[in-house]
């Protein structure tokens, strides 16, 4: 159980890092928003992996954290997309 959780932990970290690097290096706004979501998925993976590391059942509180994180990420992505669309509308003028 723990070994597989560790694998996901590393995987989560790598995905987060990839998303973060892309986010900080690209100038395109839409790519940024996508990269942000990639990093977000990686982060949640880390959270869930941490929850599964201990002996016994996975820790529900960490899952609750992950759920809240998902909700916030969705909301933020919505806001970001609205702004990106406005930028593109302006460019289209």
């Amino acid at each position: 159980m723990t070994a597989r959780a560790d694998l996901f932990l590393v995987l989560g970290a790598v995905v987060t890092l990839l998303g973060a690097v892309r986010l900080l290096t690209t100038a395109d706004l839409l790519r940024r928003v996508v990269a942000l979501n990639v990093a977000g998925v990686g982060t949640l993976l880390v959270l869930v992996a941490l929850a599964a590391r201990g002996p016994g059942d996975p820790d529900p509180v960490l899952h609750a954290l992950a759920l809240t994180g998902i909700v916030i990420t969705v909301a933020v992505t919505g806001l970001a997309l609205v702004l990106v669309r406005r930028v593109e509308e302006d460019d289209g003028d």
Binding site: R32, V33, A39, A80, L83, V84
Partner: peptide, 11 residues
Amino acid sequence: PAVRYLCVAVL
């Protein structure tokens, strides 16, 4: 700048 700020802050 607002999108940039948002992405960085959420990261």
